[in-house]
Nucleic acid binder design. Structure first.
Lengths: 201, 201
DNA sequence: ATTGAATAGTAAACTTGTTGACTATGTGCA
DNA sequence: TGCACATAGTCAACAAGTTTACTATTCAAT
């Protein structure tokens, strides 16, 4: 039996539990709403949908459309709901961090500090931009947290996580830039001291 | 030609650029020092070492030991150093977040809120523990940031990143727990209002 | 005396994610 | 008329990480 990608499969199940979607719809949902904490390409989604259908956790209805290509509308089955809830109540261990930038920072003593300063600034900007978008989304959709539906409320929690994540990265970049600049300056000072007051010998 | 796992290969190269290591040594380094930002199992490391050796980016010397099994001591070659630096100066895009816990939070409106509260508390504790360890490490090894060597300094930057990461997660857990508890309480209040003052009809 | 832990390394299968190419249809724009 | 773009989906290959299970040796503790 083919094996499911647990988190991906269950994200799809959860979205289908709220509303029937086509693969194409799901793909857009991932881009717009789920992407703060889980990414998937259309290809991954279609592949996972095929597996889920084979297990009868979801079922498809082919919708004939005139103005567009036909589509398959998927909805969750009773079995699917059961499996989803079973999975939801299991504990989840932290995922491991894998960050190219850190690997490069860790090796940056082998290259010109200016290169790393530029890269850190570029990354700071990326995270600041992402953060601004998330905050805008928060402002637009969740300005009154007490009035949210259950589903909206949990979406808000994940958005808050995304906001903390991006702001954490932006802040670290700022800290790293400052520390690195300070260090470069100290080295320059030491160098000019050395030139002005050469050690006797 | 076999393909390298870029970040993993270059982390290994970077460690070998500082000092010769056996696969086993590298594996311990990953557990102790690199794990804040990149994880690798011994198996991944041995596999990558074999690929790197085939390309002549690293070279191995077999060390005959009497009190222990023999080992292969790897060191970086001139080509390896070149390739490492070439890679270090390339920009790195943010890695995507993939977090099972978020997927479960996003679906938690389908289960009893108490289950999610417990899970969030468990996770908060995990991140708080990890944070305490990292802070202890910071205190032990980096209490005087101005006196660090270049290599130690960049290590310190990655440690600061790990600290921010873990504290960010712990704080988000706390926030989520508070918001969720507040919501549960509001629902209880609304429920008791409904019972005490039933709507006429 | 033997068991378990640490040291040192290898092999194979499997899971999961990425990439590029491919087939279609319909709409709007230039 | 043709081009780009959005919609809707499929196939195949590849990259990278995980898991399990091996083979060995040495040392310390029970």
């Amino acid at each position: 039996m083919q094996v499911l990608c647990m988190a991906l499969a269950h994200t799809i199940l959860m979205l289908l539990a709220e509303q029937a979607h086509s693969g194409y719809d799901l793909s857009k949902e991932f881009n717009e709403c789920v992407g703060h904490y889980w990414q998937a390409t259309p290809q991954q989604i279609y592949r996972e949908l095929a597996k889920l259908e084979k297990r009868d956790w979801i079922e498809a209805e082919t919708i004939t459309q005139e103005s567009r290509p036909n589509k398959k509308l998927y909805s969750i089955t009773a079995t699917g709901k059961l499996k989803l809830v079973e999975w939801l109540v299991q504990p989840a261990d932290p995922m491991s961090v894998r960050e190219d930038l850190m690997v490069k920072v860790r090796g940056s003593h082998l290259v010109n500090p200016e290169v790393m300063l530029q890269e850190l600034e570029r990354r700071r900007q990326i995270h600041a931009d992402k953060l601004a978008k998330l905050r805008e989304f928060e402002h637009e959709h969740f300005s009154e947290p007490d009035r949210l539906s259950d589903s909206e409320f949990v979406q808000y929690l994940t958005l808050r996580c995304g906001i903390r994540y991006e702001s954490g990265w932006a802040e670290w970049c700022t800290e790293a830039i400052e520390r690195l600049q300070q260090r470069v300056q100290q080295k320059r000072d030491a160098e000019s001291d050395r030139v002005l007051q050469p050690t006797p010998g």
